[in-house]
Design a binder for these strands. Structure first.
Lengths: 325, 325
DNA sequence: TTGTACGCGTTATCAT
DNA sequence: ATGATAACGCGTACAA
C-alpha cells in the first residue's frame, strides 16, 4: 500500500495540510521544529513517496513530455534514432520531467496525436521528430497552445526546431576539401527526399561549379560503388567525394578500393553521418560527425525553457566538428 | 480549456454520473435513448476528452509502462537500441498503454529507479533492458510486486525475460556451416563480457572441438583484421568464421579481402548481428539476423499478459532465421 | 431511469 | 503556528 500524507498526519497527530507543507518545504513549512522533525522522520520511516498522478491532477501539469516519431515501415534503416532519444531523456530527467514515446503512422498524424495527448492531460508538450514536414503540418502545429519542439529541418520561424545546419556543414566540408587542394568534389546521397538532403544537395550545387555532374543517388553499397566507378576511372574525375550516409560511405570506399586508388593519397572521402556510426568506417576518411545526442539535449533544453515561459527560440542549427578517422 | 464530464452534464441537464456512464458504455448507460444521444452529441460537439490523470488516480492504474535502460558512457556503440523500443511502443499503444523512457546510470540502479516510479504511481510495470545482471539485481527485482519484463539474458526462472537463444543460434550457425562442409570454424567476438556473449562463446567451445584455438577478441575492424590474418594464411586454418558484431564482421571481411581469398568460395563468413545492420555488410555472407523489433513486441506482450493477470512466463528465447546476404 | 455522495492524493485558500 | 475545507476530474456504491 502506498503511504499518503494523510497517514503520516494521523501518525504524527497533525493535519494533512501541515504534512504537505513541511514535506515540500513551503513557506508555511516553518512549523514548530519539533513537529517538523516528527513529520520528516515518520515520512522517511514509512517510505512516503508523493503520488505524481494526484500532484499532476491538482497542479494541472503532468510533468511529462512526449517524443513523437513516425516509423516508416518501408525504410530500410530504422527511423527511431536512439542517440537523440538518449539526449532528450537524460536532459528532461535532470529537470524532473518524464519522457513518453509515441509512434505515429504518418507525419500528417503527428499533430493529431500530439493534441490528443495534450487534451487528455498526459503531457505538457511535445518533441516531434519530423523528417518530411509540410505547410499543413506547420499550420496544424502552430494551432497547438502547448510547447512544441521539432527535431528536423523545419523552416518556419515561429516553430522551435533543432537540426544540423545542412548547408553549413556541406560548405564546411567543401572548404575543408578545398584547403586540402581539391577542386573537383563529387557528392553521393541516398534516395531520400527530405529537407535535410535537399538543402545539402543545394549547397553542394551552388559551390562546386563545374563538378556538378559528379552527383550520384544510390541505395546500397554495391549500386553506389558501381555508380562511382566511372568517376574514378575518369582522369578528369573528382578528386574528393562527399558521402551522405553509411551506404554511400561504404559504397565509396568499396569503389575506391576496387579502382586501386589509395584513400587519402589519390582521393579523399568525406563522410557526413551520424557520429555513432564512425566505428563502421575505415581509417583515413574525413568525417563530419552529426551529434544526435547534442540534438536531443538541445531539443529538451528548448522544451524546458519554453515550459518555464521563455519565448519560442525558433530554428536552432548545429554544426559538427570535422575529424579524421 | 479542457471539457469535463460536469460541463457536459450541465449543458445537457443531467448529472455527471450519467455522462460518465454513457460515455463509457457501461451497464448503467442504458438511459433514455434521447438523453443518451444528447450526451453523446454534445460531448462530441464540445470536444470532450477524458482526463487520463483523473482516470488514473481514481482507478489506481496509470496505464503507463516504463522502459528502463542504462546508457554506458564508455560504450562505443550507443546502448539504446531503437529497434526493440519501436516494437515495445507499437505493441503497448495498441493495447492502450503508454510508454515512458528512463535512463539509469548503472544496472544496479535500475531496480531502485523502477520501484521509485512504481511508488509514485506513474507506471504499472517496467520493461528493463539488462545486459549485465547480477544475483543481487534479480533479488531486488523479485521484491517488486508490479509486473517486470527483462530484455536480455536473465537466467532466473521467476523473472520474465526476452532474449535471443544465444547457444541455440550458435548451434544453428555451426550446423549450417557444417552442412556447407566446414569442419574448422573460428569465432570472433567483441571485448564485452555480458551473458549473451558468454553463452555464445560457451556454445561454440562445446561444439567446434579442435577448432577451439581459432578464437579472437577484438574491438575495431583493423585489430580484428590483423587478428584473423594468420588464420587465413594458415593452410590448416578455419574455413569458416562466425562474427558476433559489426566490427567483427567488417574486420573479417577486410582480412579476407586482404588475404586474396574469395568470400563464399575459399571461406565462409557467418554474421550474428542485429537485423537492422544487414545493409552494412557485403553480399555473400551468411547472416543470423537478430530481430530486435520482435524482441520488443514479445516483451510488450508479456507485460500486457501479466498486467491482465496471467502468470509470469519466465524466460522466453527467440531464434532468428539464417539468411544469405 | 436518474441523482447523491464519496473518495482517489494532492495543493491552495481562508479562517483561527 | 495550525486546521478545516474546497477543489482537480473521474468512477462507483447506494439511494431515490
Amino acid at each position: 500500500m502506498a503511504v499518503t500524507q494523510t497517514e503520516i498526519a494521523k501518525v504524527v497527530g497533525v493535519s494533512q495540510t501541515i504534512v504537505s507543507d513541511v514535506l515540500h518545504g513551503r513557506a508555511r513549512g516553518r512549523v514548530r521544529p519539533e513537529t517538523r522533525q516528527r513529520i520528516l522522520s515518520t515520512a522517511r520511516q514509512l517510505g512516503y513517496r508523493p503520488n505524481a498522478l494526484a500532484q499532476a491532477l491538482r497542479m494541472r501539469q503532468s510533468r511529462q513530455i512526449v517524443y513523437l516519431a513516425t516509423l516508416d515501415e518501408t525504410m530500410e534503416f530504422p527511423a527511431l534514432r536512439e542517440s537523440d532519444l538518449a539526449g532528450v531523456a537524460k536532459t528532461l530527467r535532470q529537470q524532473g520531467y518524464r519522457l513518453l514515446i509515441e509512434i505515429a503512422k504518418t507525419t500528417e498524424q503527428e499533430a493529431n496525436v500530439l493534441s490528443e495527448m495534450i487534451a487528455t492531460g498526459i503531457c505538457d508538450g511535445g518533441i516531434l521528430r519530423v523528417y518530411r514536414g509540410s505547410e499543413q503540418l506547420w499550420k496544424d502545429l502552430l494551432e497547438i497552445s502547448e510547447p512544441i519542439v521539432l527535431i528536423g529541418q523545419c523552416p518556419h520561424p515561429d516553430l522551435a526546431s533543432i537540426a544540423h545546419d545542412a548547408p553549413g556543414l556541406i560548405s564546411q566540408a567543401i572548404k575543408h576539401l578545398n584547403d586540402l587542394g581539391h577542386t573537383l568534389i563529387g557528392l553521393v546521397v541516398p534516395p531520400v527526399h527530405d529537407v535535410y538532403h535537399e538543402l545539402a544537395i543545394g549547397a553542394w550545387r551552388n559551390q562546386v561549379g563545374p563538378a556538378e555532374k559528379w552527383f550520384a543517388v544510390g541505395e546500397h553499397r554495391r549500386d553506389i560503388a558501381d555508380l562511382i566507378a566511372p568517376w574514378l576511372a575518369d582522369p578528369n574525375g573528382p578528386t574528393a567525394i562527399i558521402a551522405m550516409n553509411p551506404a554511400c560511405v561504404l559504397g565509396a570506399t568499396t569503389s575506391i578500393r576496387e579502382s586501386g586508388k589509395i584513400l587519402g593519397r589519390d582521393i579523399d572521402l568525406h563522410a557526413v553521418d551520424d557520429l555513432s556510426s564512425r566505428w563502421t568506417y575505415e581509417p583515413g576518411i574525413w568525417f563530419s560527425g552529426l551529434d544526435m545526442d547534442a540534438v536531443g539535449i538541445h531539443a529538451a533544453k528548448a522544451m524546458i525553457s519554453m515550459l518555464e515561459g521563455s519565448p519560442n527560440p525558433g530554428p536552432i542549427r548545429l554544426m559538427p566538428e570535422i575529424i579524421c578517422l
